[in-house]
Amino acid sequence: MGRSFESVRQGVKSIADRWSRTTRALKKEDQQYGEKLVELAKKHSSESFVGCDDPLEAAVFSVLVEILKRQDAIESAQRANGEP
């Protein structure tokens, strides 16, 4: 109270809004990836405030966690199908 500054979560939201606007400038076939990034950036915005002070750091952290999760899921599926 008495003083306030933008929280990391609010900061991530501003970044997501900016990325969302940027996405509109992408080629049509690339836009879906921009939109996906916006979604992934916000996925862990609440939790990342525990360690991150910089909203950009938090947004990138959130995206990377989700990409690793996806990669892991793909690799598990490949292993299950007997692929190398």
Binding site: K43, H44, S46, E47, F49, V50
Partner: peptide, 8 residues
């Protein structure tokens, strides 16, 4: 000054 913990 981070406030309370919240999960999403």
């Amino acid at each position: 000054d981070r406030g309370g913990m919240m999960f999403q």
